[in-house]
Computed example of a mutant assay.
Amino acid sequence: MAFKLYELSAQYQQLIDLISSSDTERPEFTDTLESIEEAIDDKLENTAKVIRAIEAEANAIKVEEERLKKRRQALEGNADRLKDYIFQTMQATGKDKVKGAHVGLRLQYNPPSVRLLDEKLVPAHYLVEQHPTVDKKALLADLKNGIAVEGVELKREQSLRIV
């Protein structure tokens, strides 16, 4: 009968509780405890193997995404260069419209926009205030060096590493 990992963990904890509450030493407890530990170790290792397989597939997808992103960017660049070529040619020849059998082309004005010539000369009432952000790297360095900083604490959490 194959047990699930959480079932094995519960059995292990029950046995530990039974051993710690018992006054007499019973050798069968040790054998049972070792067999549950082996089963847990096997389940954990097999789960880690599944994690590695999933991560390998995710990495393969990531590599493919990067390849497709580069291809998309190259195609977009080609399209932008060709648009600019058409734009320059239409401007140079004075054409505002070209009506083709399948595609029409037209030069048009875009909505008005602002171009900053010198940001220092812009009146203060046009400036937007920025909220300060916390420099977490500097805070971490100070906390590691034993400097107490009000409003923060140094924390250290555990995580799983599959080796």
Score class of each variant (00 low, 15 high):
residue 22 S to H: 04
residue 159 S to K: 14
residue 81 R to F: 08
residue 155 K to H: 04
residue 75 L to P: 06
residue 46 N to V: 07
residue 29 F to M: 06
residue 9 S to H: 09
residue 140 L to V: 12
residue 160 L to G: 01
residue 155 K to Q: 09
residue 49 K to R: 12
residue 156 R to E: 14
residue 41 D to H: 04
residue 47 T to F: 14
residue 88 Q to P: 00
residue 10 A to G: 04
residue 135 D to H: 10
residue 147 I to D: 03
residue 68 L to Y: 06
residue 60 A to I: 00
residue 7 E to Q: 10
residue 156 R to Y: 06
residue 59 N to W: 11
residue 158 Q to S: 11
residue 34 E to L: 12
residue 109 Y to Q: 15
residue 94 G to S: 07
residue 151 G to P: 02
residue 95 K to I: 02
residue 33 L to C: 03
residue 90 M to L: 15
residue 59 N to V: 03
residue 121 L to N: 10
residue 93 T to L: 10
residue 32 T to K: 11
residue 160 L to N: 05
residue 112 P to F: 07
residue 58 A to G: 00
residue 107 L to S: 08
residue 59 N to E: 14
residue 161 R to T: 14
residue 6 Y to R: 09
residue 18 L to F: 12
residue 138 A to V: 10
residue 93 T to H: 03
residue 25 E to V: 15
residue 92 A to E: 13
residue 45 E to Y: 12
residue 116 L to I: 15
residue 37 E to P: 00
residue 96 D to S: 13
residue 103 V to L: 14
residue 81 R to T: 12
residue 23 D to P: 04
residue 40 I to H: 00
residue 62 K to D: 07
residue 1 M to V: 14
residue 8 L to K: 02
residue 71 R to D: 08
residue 112 P to W: 03
residue 120 K to H: 01
residue 82 L to R: 08
residue 70 K to C: 07
residue 17 D to V: 00
residue 153 E to P: 02
residue 28 E to D: 13
residue 99 K to W: 09
residue 144 K to C: 01
residue 68 L to E: 03
residue 41 D to K: 10
residue 110 N to Y: 10
residue 91 Q to P: 00
residue 57 E to W: 05
residue 112 P to Q: 13
residue 68 L to K: 01
residue 115 R to W: 02
residue 149 V to K: 12
residue 125 H to A: 06
